[in-house]
Computed example of a mutant assay.
Amino acid sequence: MDDTELQRERILRHVSPIITGRFIGFQASYTREVRVGRPLAIAVFITAGIAQLLASLLRMKPARRSLRDLRKGPEFLVTPVRLRDDLGQTYEVEMHGQLPQSALHRGDLVQVRTEPQSDRTLPVKLMQVVNLTTMQPLTPRIPTRWSHLGPAMLLQATAGLVVVAALVFVILR
Score class of each variant (00 low, 15 high):
Gly97Pro: 03
Glu115Cys: 08
Glu9Asp: 07
Val15Met: 12
Thr90Phe: 01
Ile50Glu: 07
Pro80Trp: 01
Ser29His: 03
Pro39Gln: 14
Ser66Gln: 07
Gln136Ile: 03
Leu6Val: 08
Tyr30His: 09
Ile19Arg: 07
His105Leu: 12
Arg145Phe: 00
Thr114Phe: 03
Thr4Trp: 01
Arg64Asp: 03
Gly73Trp: 01
Leu126Tyr: 05
His96Val: 02
Met153Lys: 13
Thr121Ile: 06
Ser118Pro: 06
Thr134Glu: 06
Ala103Trp: 04
Pro74Cys: 05
Arg68Pro: 00
Ala63Pro: 00
Val78Ile: 09
Arg32Ser: 09
Arg65Gly: 03
Asp85Val: 05
Glu33Phe: 02
Thr158Leu: 13
Arg59Met: 07
Lys125Gln: 11
Asp2Ser: 05
Arg68Thr: 05
Arg113Asp: 14
Arg173Tyr: 01
Leu57Thr: 11
Ala51Arg: 13
Gly150Cys: 05
Ala165Gly: 06
Val36Ile: 10
Leu109Asn: 12
Ala51Ile: 08
Met135Asn: 14
Ala28Ser: 06
Ala41Lys: 12
Leu6Phe: 03
Ile24Ala: 09
Arg120Lys: 13
Thr114Arg: 10
Val34Pro: 00
Val93Ile: 06
Leu53Pro: 00
Gln27Leu: 04
Leu109Ile: 12
Ala157Gly: 10
Leu149His: 08
Pro39Trp: 04
Leu40Ile: 03
Glu92Pro: 02
Pro151Ser: 15
Thr90Gln: 09
Leu122Val: 06
Leu83Trp: 00
Asp3Gln: 08
Leu109Arg: 15
His96Ile: 02
Val44Asn: 11
Val15Thr: 12
Glu33Pro: 00
Thr133Gln: 15
Glu33His: 06
Arg59Glu: 12
Asp3Met: 07
His96Asp: 04
Arg13Trp: 01
Arg106His: 08
Val34Lys: 06
Gln156Leu: 06
His105Met: 11
Ala51Cys: 10
Val110Arg: 09
Pro17His: 06
Arg84Glu: 02
Gly88Asp: 05
Asp3Glu: 14
Val129Leu: 12
Ile42His: 07
Thr139Ser: 13
Asp69Pro: 00
Phe45Val: 04
Gly21Gln: 04
Leu87Tyr: 01
Leu12Ser: 11
Met153Asn: 11
His14Val: 04
Leu12Asp: 10
Gln136Ala: 14
Leu138Ile: 13
Val170Asn: 14
Arg71Ser: 09
Met127Arg: 15
Ser118Asn: 09
Val170Thr: 11
Val112Tyr: 02
Gln27Thr: 03
Arg141Thr: 13
Ala55Cys: 07
Arg22Val: 02
Ala165Arg: 06
Ser102Leu: 05
Leu67Asn: 11
Arg84Cys: 02
Ile19Val: 09
Arg145Lys: 13
Val112Gln: 08
Val81Glu: 10
His148Met: 05
Val93Lys: 12
Pro140Ser: 14
Ala41Arg: 11
Gly49Trp: 01
Arg35Phe: 01
Leu40Asn: 08
Asp69Ser: 09
Leu126Ser: 13
Thr47Gly: 05
Ile46Asn: 13
Gly73Arg: 08
Gly97Arg: 15
Thr47Ile: 10
Leu53Val: 07
Arg59Ile: 04
Ala55Lys: 14
Glu94Met: 07
Arg13Ser: 10
Leu132Arg: 14
Leu83Asn: 07
Arg120Asp: 04
Ile18Arg: 15
Arg82Ala: 10
Val124Thr: 12
Gln128Tyr: 03
Leu104Asp: 12
Pro100Arg: 15
Val34Gln: 12
Gln7Phe: 01
Gln136Trp: 00
